[in-house]
Design a protein around this nucleic acid. Sequence first.
DNA 1: GTAAGTACTAACCTTTTGGAAAGCACTTAC
DNA 2: GTAAGTGCTTTCCAAAAGGTTAGTACTTAC
Lengths: 120, 120
Amino acid sequence: MAITTKELKHKKTECTQATMAVRDALDVLNGRWKLPIIVSLSFGVKRFNEISKEVLGISDKVLAKELKDLEMNMLIKRTVYDTFPPTVEYNITEHGKSLNSVIEELKDWGTLHRKKIIGR
Amino acid sequence: MAITTKELKHKKTECTQATMAVRDALDVLNGRWKLPIIVSLSFGVKRFNEISKEVLGISDKVLAKELKDLEMNMLIKRTVYDTFPPTVEYNITEHGKSLNSVIEELKDWGTLHRKKIIGR
DNA sequence: GTAAGTACTAACCTTTTGGAAAGCACTTAC
DNA sequence: GTAAGTGCTTTCCAAAAGGTTAGTACTTAC
């Protein structure tokens, strides 16, 4: 089911703003780790190893990558202190906090869904 | 950074219900295609090829898989009519409609984020 | 009989994602 | 000098996701 450039252009004009905005949001939050990390940081400033322990199952490599992504999208801020054993702190930004209502909705829906499907 | 069973059990007791619910929701909606498909179907009943044309870039194989996933999670319903060229219709369920507020939030946040980062 | 249309599935291959383990730079404490 | 602690990075490898192309079952229209 190949899509020709013509079809793509044609469809693009029909494509609603809404769908694109949802896609934008999903792209930023993609994967299993972004939101758990944000939730973890929403409880306060944390260091690398603290996040690594709180977000269950994440590997160092992936955590480092996810933190970079989140920083690039201005959802979190990285602060380095030049201490003896190095200290790096991560905290949410105002922009990151604006995700609160999204997270609330996901939490509510997740709870509803669990009742409906998993724990029926 | 391996996690021992002991650590896992220990942390599990601390792990908030909230984080698990968010995870549940994300698991159901994972990937780039689930929500676009749901949005597409939220505008009305559609057939396989119609969805395939509306959800830009998705391949037949992936579409078929995603539709199966969504049906298993009771978000959409599949109806087969035994006509000459076969007809299969997909529509959202009530449970699927309960995602509306999540989608609204994602849309709003996506719009905000685009202003902040992409089109600053 | 042959072409067309629908909704897929199967086979094959490439890309992406992700985990485990080790290493590194730097400094302090012993 | 050597061990420890921090925040990563690198290498290697396995699994998962995803794209392309072809094919199938069935019937109807020509």
